[in-house]
Design a protein around this nucleic acid. Structure first.
Lengths: 337, 337
DNA sequence: CTGAAAGCGCTTACAG
DNA sequence: CTGAAAGCGCTTACAG
């Protein structure tokens, strides 16, 4: 039904190979012929069949991003970074998403991407089941995790240093005179949460503080998890400051604190992790440790490109993007100066 | 490098067609052979080559969504709906995105999708240039616009009724005793903004009110546009209520009002369009007209499926999903009762 | 500058 | 139940 190269060739009375050459911008066809072919292709509404091209070339110019959620604004920032860098390299981006942590779901999402000759795969804050990591490695396709760090040296990633996030935020609060500091709405098992927790504990330890169990409220980084954590802390919490696992969780904490009659930052300080624009949309504005999500996207694509340039090197890159505390209005300074 | 069907066939000493049958779950191969082939396929790390399959079958089981932004939470909701319904039908979803309104960019995004045998294309709040609409139609691939309505009867869509959004929100405010009502951060040219504006004007007209030009502040639906609109209205605005083009714009209005020393809702009421969770994250919570984005996704996929079932019918569906005003805390009732 | 031919990896009638 | 063969739409050496 759709016109093919052969249709064009037949109509003009020329070989398909000639048509192919002009339609794929290969040199070596006379200008008159070139123009004629272009014209007929347009007339016939010719559309290149990518499946055929990819089959013969065994490669495409698409890179794939696998995302766990399209609802957080930070994944949007990462994707913006990927898209910008991909475009710069003439690559097309396709996104598939795998919301659940279910290995079977993950596998389906991975396969939609692995079974095509994509140039590379970027995985956005996805904790892949071991089987699926194996699948990925088997595929021989360059890949890189983004916004999650792994402790397997064979797995490349670009991420913030989550240990540092836990450590620096806690230190920052310590420097403001806080001693009883909570950590809320982080996941215990994935690396992200575990590392943040470890950094938090280390900073506290160095200050000679032993956190009580209830200072840490696990959760899934959501707004609801933030609210729930604050409910658990209660109106009479001994804490003077809380680190939220995400901006949304920080807002949850903030709103629930208000419901409990606690003023932020006078009664309780909140520091959120991420630093998306949401921090500036609430009142008081949330002080945050901001991550450079856009850069993660950029660096991820660059890494994929570097692998392609030097496949022999097989360098596994584990890169940390910088984080930075941005002071806004949700933290109380308890020191005298 | 990667194992093919032929490799497996050779290794076992059987015909490629037999291998193909078991690997694509076709009946008619003995159980012993089936198992043998499965085992060897696994050993060799066989991955199906989709490009080859699609080439011969001239069809795939993927549907594509073209999105203009992955940053708004409502597009995330639409995608969730699409994904859920796609999954139910055994379809895989791939997302490409085309942030800009630039026709050339749009075309690139469209082509990445049209040049493959996708089963259908969903366009999320994208105002396509005329050339690109033609491209889409030429491609013969079923498509449907989502969260945008068009007045060309040849173009299928699933969307809220934006005229009704303008009309109902204005009426709602009128019923609360407001007479001087603003409309902020909507786009004038695309259908969405134009329709909302028309509905707003009609409701005002029916109430015998002639809106002054400065009551309507155009913008791009963003947080910044909301803030800017409020700056333009000024601290001494005659308005008692403002309809915001989006939740983010509503928050912009809200925060800027605070900066100007205006209390919401006492000094000025705000009603935002969309009703995402952001409405409940700010203080006061924003009363909104809520759209059923999830349903748009579902219905979009269903439409694509129906086209495929009855291609002859060629029914162009233009469907409106329901909207509903959700009262929260940002509107002042000026009437006595 | 142009053409004939082989082949990418699969699927699917058609035989047997 | 299994195999031989043709073909999907393109690209790319190889000739000329």
């Amino acid at each position: 039904m759709a016109a093919t190269i052969k249709d064009i060739a037949r109509k003009i009375g020329v070989a398909p190979s000639t048509v192919s050459r002009v339609l794929s911008n290969k040199p070596g066809v006379g200008p008159a012929m070139t123009e004629r072919i272009r014209k007929v292709a347009k007339e016939l509404g010719y559309k290149k069949n990518r499946a055929a091209v990819e089959l013969v070339k065994q490669r495409s110019n698409v890179i794939a991003a696998v995302v766990s959620s399209v609802k957080t604004s930070f994944s949007g920032q990462i994707i913006d970074g990927i898209q910008a860098e991909a475009e710069k390299n003439g690559l097309n981006l396709i996104i598939v998403y795998s919301h659940s942590a279910d290995p079977v779901e993950q596998k389906k999402a991975l396969l939609t991407v692995i079974e095509r000759p994509v140039r590379g795969i970027l995985l956005l804050s996805i904790a892949l089941a071991a089987d699926n990591v194996a699948l990925l490695q088997e595929s021989q396709i360059p890949f890189c995790f983004l916004s999650i760090s792994l402790d397997d040296p064979a797995l490349p990633f670009v991420s913030s240093d989550d240990w540092q996030i836990g450590y620096q935020t806690t230190q920052f609060l310590l420097n403001k005179g806080h001693r009883k500091i909570g950590l809320a709405a982080i996941d215990k098992y994935p690396y992200t949460g575990r590392l943040r927790l470890a950094g938090y504990r280390q900073a506290l330890k160095e200050a000679g503080i032993l956190p009580r169990d209830q200072w840490v409220q696990l959760g899934d980084y959501s707004y609801a998890a933030g609210k729930q954590a604050m409910v658990n802390y209660g109106a009479h919490t001994e804490l003077t400051a809380i680190i939220a696992g995400s901006d949304a969780a920080g807002v949850g904490l903030l709103n629930q604190a208000r419901i409990l009659g606690l003023k932020v930052p006078d009664d309780i300080s909140i520091l959120s992790i991420d630093g998306t624009e949401m921090c500036e949309m609430v009142q008081p504005q949330l002080t945050s440790i901001s991550q450079d999500f856009y850069k993660m996207g950029i660096e991820g694509v660059k890494y994929l490109q570097s692998i392609e340039m030097h496949p022999a090197a097989k360098k596994i890159q584990q890169e940390y993007t910088p984080v930075q505390i941005v002071e806004r209005q949700s933290i109380n300074n308890l020191t005298n100066n």
